[in-house]
């Protein structure tokens, strides 16, 4: 199983442990990820406000680079996923937009044809690899560990674009937890917004969103939150102290990346998976 791997800006800077932990175990599963070295930032659902054409060409190019390799494009970031898929949907449904994009890509020997799918790492595990196969690889089952799966927004909504989980009752991450031997807590915030995208422009409001989700997970008795998105992780981990400030919540709650949770079940240590890099100790 071979994929082009989209390098997300945040995983190259603030959340390096995502790719660090991923590299530890993908080969154990026989999955090969080829870095999309020439790919650029997707524009994080901001680029298109400044210029819709730039958004299309830049992301058409990102996907075309994967097409040239003959591979589907995989990302570990939900917002990159949503943004790339938004461009893909626009291009796949409009010959005029494809023409615009291809006019700009021809000089580089690239062409957007729509042949590569754009997927999240979570979908690679649940759909392509398969959870039964993954469960058979588990060497250190997460027995007795209670997880609060936090999906966040951009792996669920808009469902017309993402179309895997039911956004009001998502289950893919829950099933992954169970496949690794972990147990689940039920809590209402699993499909809510972490607040990351407005942390700079509306900090207090964003921290309320973050705090609500954290408080909910703590009250449900979770040992860990686990999330498929490094942006959610940043809000929930790096901003946790600020978000819980004044709420009278009894304790902090460590937040794992999906790639780290898988790594733990496959027998890697917390240090090997970069869990010691988090702001909230696990």
């Amino acid at each position: 199983m071979k994929y082009a791997y989209f390098l997300s800006c945040i995983n190259e800077s603030m959340t390096k442990e995502v790719d660090l932990s991923l590299t530890r175990w993908v080969k154990d599963l026989g999955i090969e990820l080829v870095n999309l070295e020439k790919g650029t930032c997707c524009g994080g659902s901001n680029l298109d406000y400044v210029s819709p054409d730039h958004f299309l060409v830049i992301n058409g190019r990102n996907i075309a680079l994967a097409e040239k390799m003959g591979l589907d494009l995989v990302t570990s970031c939900s917002t990159c996923l949503m943004t790339l898929r938004r461009a893909k949907q626009a291009l796949d449904s409009s010959p005029e937009k494809r023409e615009l994009v291809n006019g700009h890509l021809a000089g580089e020997g690239l062409r957007y044809n729509g042949t590569s799918d754009v997927k999240h790492l979570l979908w690679v595990l649940t759909e392509d690899y398969g959870l039964n196969r993954l469960a058979a690889k588990v060497t250190a089952p997460l027995w007795g560990v209670r997880f609060a799966p936090f999906y966040g927004c951009h792996i669920l909504r808009p469902s017309s674009l993402l179309g895997r989980d039911n956004p009001t009752a998502p289950s893919s991450l829950d099933r992954l937890v169970e496949a690794l031997g972990g147990s689940l807590v039920e809590y209402g915030s699993k499909n809510k917004c972490c607040g990351f995208h407005t942390l700079l422009v509306a900090e207090q409001q964003s921290l309320s969103m973050t705090g609500n989700a954290l408080e909910d997970a703590v009250r449900a008795g979770a040992d860990y939150i686990v999330t498929p998105c490094p942006l959610c992780h940043t809000a929930l981990d790096a901003y946790q102290d600020k978000a819980l400030d004044g709420r009278g919540v009894s304790r902090n709650i460590p937040v794992l990346h999906l790639s780290q949770m898988v790594g733990l079940a496959l027998g890697y240590s917390k240090e090997e998976l970069g869990i010691d890099r988090h702001m909230i100790a696990a």
């Binding site: 909504r157 808009p158 469902s159 917004c193 969103m209």
Partner: peptide, 12 residues
């Protein structure tokens, strides 16, 4: 306008 968190809950 700029405070929208683009969570897509409204559209969903």
């Amino acid at each position: 306008l700029w405070d929208c968190a683009h969570c897509y809950k409204c559209a969903e």
